[in-house]
Design a protein around this nucleic acid. Structure first.
Length: 733
RNA sequence: GCGCGAUUAGCUCAGUUGGUAGAGCAGGAUGUUUACACCAUCAAGGUCGUAGGUUCGAGUCCUACAUCGCGCACCA
């Protein structure tokens, strides 16, 4: 065993410290608020503070984005815990249905295995194995990050309890008529063989050939000749003078791809007179805009392309061909018939692709399950889900930080369509619906009787994520946790999932529980590299790996670099230079503590000498600082707090107070001054360790462990040195 | 097309009811004093994107524009 003195003689070594300290915390049980109450560090009737961890996807490692979220949340949680609140930070992971499944599919592909070769059950086993491994890695990494998460309450979006919550929610929504099955326009991913949501689409700008063809007396333009087989309606604006002589409903014959067809003229205000020729034909089965026009005018809809992206028999000689092959050939045929007017080779349009598989989206009309966001719900004051989502943000029951995101939120909700929740993938919550002939049963378990077959599809992963704030607390059971910790205090996450996730949590909680899921939403920015690139896997070597940074400079240094200069909503450029700087600061704290220890040996901490006038002023200054930063902590302004504490420690405590104490202690022989200086050193150090702890938990806890205090607790459950409620410094120091 | 954000010292960023511009890093000079060279002291560095407006007073509020970034919609 090294003695305290020996350990302090060397520079601070995070590597040898952090693992040991985390174990100390974990073994203490203080991450669990129940233990805190049991052991008397938290009052039984203390105010609760709760955060649910945005569950990382079980698709691999933690990246800097996760690290950032863990750091910010850990700061909030440690601060709350030190304030004596009943503090719960609840961990978990997300099965991330489509993301995980496609990842495993890709891995299997490398072995030359296709998922259909394995079959559903065997494939799911593989996915579960992969998910389990990822989960273990993630938990490990969270611990390395110093996250004070209550592991005893850990949850998984696809475990049994969460499945019960999902089925309960589904059934209730179905019974209320909010969930329905219908033929609607959806985004079909032919590559992934599943429907995806609008939010899972990534638009890519591409150059495409823009063909203009003769269509009877009109010229029409398209980038997709292969969809034109079923086009028997030609649409133009009712006010377009050029086409005045044509009447709505008028029919005419024309020569088209596979011979003569009859076309009908439709007048519709949705047509942009300025675009192209101002005339277009419509393909209602494969375009949502065309679909709307067709619905409005009650027109026929025909499917042209199947779910594998191949042309159907309607295409005649082109039937069975893939889109890409057919396109050029069809254009050639029209050209041969003398119907091609022109080709614009430089036309740029946006192509919808699937985020996970990269496949090109083919809009299709399909039988799927949807959540109706506009239907009035009698049991909820006759409000629609949309209204239930808008209300709490409008009425400030939910505060979004930074608040300009509220506008973005409103904008999104107002344009919200019904939410398609069924997915044709295997990994996920199976839809709790059984069919027998024409009968449908929706419930928690397969109904009695022979011949019931469960729906093959699974639910959109965000359906279960939407329940996260309360499914993790035991819902649908009325648990004590649910009562104590819901609504949660803060939801902290990246602004990129405002719609995916935050909106859906509000929807689910408002509808199922009749309350908000959280009182505050803190949105952090994206982590970028020093040259401004988004930190992602495609960057390879250039991406900063949080764990290797920790190995190099220590966790506390990484944490500080992620907090200082990082304000809500703004992107953070992570720069190794800065991290190195905070590594130096960590050591500065270490060395300053050594000096204080040396000088204050033998001092009776329970009965400190009184301060002289000069030192009293210094003490007052620190108290003022604490008052300031406590207010800023309450307002989630962590960047400024970290900066102020950093600055005070280095340039006031170390540069002024320690230097002054040298004068007094080492060169002076006025006993009263010497005693005062020692008392001040001691007081300030203990206070600063506490104030710094949420930001730099490891080094502060390590130094705290060496403080000569009888029967002391861990620093993580010491009292925060300023009592905001009473507006006075906590006299515990 | 609609909307949002950013524009402040060489770099990265703070700057919350409008009241004489702040920090870190980098760079410069000096020093090695007994916690710390993972150090100290000192100095330098900004007409706060542009143009107007409101005001006794604007980095902060308003209008327009420019550049960069982002979101949404459209794309026949």
């Amino acid at each position: 065993m090294t003695t305290v003195d020996e350990k302090l003689l060397k520079p601070y070594n995070p590597k040898n410290t952090e693992e040991r300290i985390y174990k100390l915390w974990e073994d203490s049980g203080f991450f669990n608020p129940d233990v805190c109450v049991e052991k008397g560090v938290t009052q039984k009737d203390a105010k609760p503070f709760s955060i649910v961890l945005p569950p990382p996807n079980v698709t691999g490692n933690l990246h800097t984005g996760h690290a950032l979220m863990l750091v910010i949340q850990d700061i909030m949680v440690r601060y709350a815990r030190m304030q004596g609140k009943k503090t719960l930070w609840l961990p978990g992971t997300d099965h991330a249905a489509i993301a995980t499944q496609s990842k495993v599919e890709k891995l299997l592909e490398k072995e030359g295995i296709k998922k259909n070769d394995l079959g559903r059950a065997e494939f799911l086993k593989r996915v579960e194995k992969f998910a389990q491994d990822s989960h273990d890695t993630i938990v490990n990494q969270c611990k390395k990050m110093g996250a004070s998460l209550d592991w005893s309450r850990e949850a998984f979006t696809l475990d049994e309890k969460r499945n019960l919550a999902v089925k309960t929610a589904f059934k209730q929504m179905y019974d209320d008529g909010l969930i329905y099955r219908g033929n609607r326009m959806v985004n079909w991913d032919p590559k992934g063989q599943t429907v995806i949501s609008d939010d899972e689409i990534v638009y890519e700008e591409r150059k495409s050939k823009f063909y203009t063809f003769k269509y009877g007396p009109f010229n029409i333009s398209t980038v997709r000749p292969e969809t034109k087989f079923g086009d028997k309606y030609v649409v133009m604006h009712p006010d377009d003078k050029r086409y005045e002589k044509y009447k709505d409903g008028e029919q005419f014959e024309l020569e088209w791809i596979n011979g003569k067809i009859t076309a009908t003229i439709i007048k519709d205000k949705n047509i942009d007179m300025e675009f192209g020729t101002g005339v277009m034909t419509i393909t209602p089965w494969h375009s949502s805009v065309d679909f709307e026009i067709a619905e409005k005018h009650k027109l026929d809809k025909e499917q042209i392309i199947d779910k594998y992206g191949k042309l159907l028999p309607i295409a005649g000689e082109f039937a069975g061909m893939k889109i890409a092959d057919a396109r050029e050939k069809i254009a050639d045929k029209l050209k041969a018939k003398g119907l091609l007017v022109s080709i614009d080779e430089n036309y740029v349009n946006r192509v919808a692709t699937a985020e996970r598989t990269g496949g090109m989206i083919e809009p299709q009309i399909m039988l799927q399950w949807f959540i109706d966001v506009n239907k009035k719900i009698p049991s909820r004051g006759n409000k629609s889900l949309k209204e239930l989502m808008l209300e709490p943000v409008r009425e400030s029951k939910i505060k979004i930080i930074p608040n300009y995101f509220e506008k973005v939120y409103f904008n999104w909700i107002e344009n919200l369509h019904d939410w398609c929740i069924s997915r044709q993938i295997w990994y996920g919550h199976r839809i709790p619906v059984w069919y027998k002939g024409k009968e449908i049963f929706v419930g928690m378990e397969e109904p009695d009787g022979e011949g019931w077959v469960q729906d093959e599809d699974t639910l959109d992963t965000w359906f279960s994520s939407g329940l996260w704030t309360f499914s993790t607390l035991g819902w649908p059971d009325a648990t004590k946790d649910l009562k104590t910790y819901h609504p949660t205090t803060v939801l902290e996450t990246g602004h990129d999932i405002l719609f995916f996730w935050i909106a859906r949590m509000i929807l689910m909680s408002q509808y199922l529980l009749g309350e908000v899921p959280f009182e505050n939403v803190y949105l952090h920015g994206m982590v970028r590299t020093a040259d401004g690139k988004k930190m992602s896997k495609s960057l390879g070597e250039k991406a900063i790996d949080p764990l290797s940074i920790i190995a190099k400079y220590g966790n506390d240094a990484l944490r500080m670099s992620m907090v200082v200069g990082n304000t809500p909503g703004n992107d953070l450029k992570l720069n190794e230079n800065d991290i190195r700087g905070y590594g130096k600061f960590t050591n500065k704290i270490w060395n300053a503590s050594r000096f204080v220890f040396e000088q204050t040996k033998g001092l009776d901490a329970t009965n400190l000498p009184s301060l002289d006038e000069e030192d009293l002023i210094s003490q007052k200054e620190l108290e003022n600082l604490l008052k300031e930063v406590s207010k800023e902590m309450d307002e989630f302004r962590f960047s400024i707090v970290a900066e102020k504490l950093y600055h005070y420690f280095w340039h006031t405590f170390a540069d002024i107070i320690i230097e002054r104490s040298k004068e007094k202690i080492l060169k002076n022989n006025n006993a009263k001054e010497i005693q005062s200086a020692k008392a001040l050193l001691y007081t300030q150090l203990t206070t600063l360790l506490k104030a710094l702890h949420p930001f730099m938990p490891f080094v502060t806890e390590e130094i705290w462990s060496m403080m000569p205090i009888e029967n002391k607790n861990l620093l993580m459950v010491e009292k925060w040195p300023f009592d905001s409620a009473q507006d006075k410094p906590d006299d515990n120091h």
